[in-house]
């Protein structure tokens, strides 16, 4: 099995890579938010990961809208990159490509819970 995985076309592993990258970004952002409560350096404030008792729909927008956008754009960008990658595309190029995807995903989801 491992040898098959090694030689199969990257597009076959796109779903798994998408899940790993999106989950990883989420975890890293959460860790940064926890470690930097000022959110001066963390991409997201800690409140982006909190659900509180609130009045009105908008107050849950952070969790209901922001995080899904972050996850979906990351997963989409990762999957597209793997599906469209040439077989000669190496790991380093893929890391750079996915790095760009994480930046784009964060930018598009706007980095704010509100």
């Amino acid at each position: 099995m491992p040898s098959i995985c090694r030689v199969s076309h990257p597009s076959r592993r796109a779903p798994f890579a998408a899940v790993v990258t999106a989950t990883g970004l989420l975890a890293v952002c959460a860790a940064a938010a926890y470690a930097d409560p000022t959110s001066l350096f963390a991409p997201l404030p800690w409140s982006a990961f909190q659900v509180t008792s609130v009045h009105g729909l908008w107050s849950v927008a952070g969790v209901a809208v922001f995080l899904p956008v972050l996850v979906l754009v990351t997963a989409w960008g990762t999957a597209v990159s793997f599906r469209g990658a040439a077989e000669s595309t190496g790991r380093r190029r893929m890391v750079v490509r996915l790095w760009g995807v994480t930046i784009l995903a964060t930018a598009r989801s706007r980095g704010s819970p509100r």
Binding site: P2, C5, R6, P10, R13, F16, A17, A18, V20, T21, A22, T23, G24, L25, A27, V28, C29, A32, F41, A42, P43, T74, T78, F82, E87, S88, T89, G90, R91, M94, V95, V96, R97, L98, W99, V101, T102, I103, T106, G111
Partner: peptide
């Protein structure tokens, strides 16, 4: 800000599935 840490999930995604040409 994510420029600083985005490479971590990117590396996870690129490496976790043991992708190589």
């Amino acid at each position: 800000r994510v420029v600083l840490i985005g490479w971590i999930p990117a590396a996870l995604g690129a490496y976790a599935h043991r992708y190589r040409p």
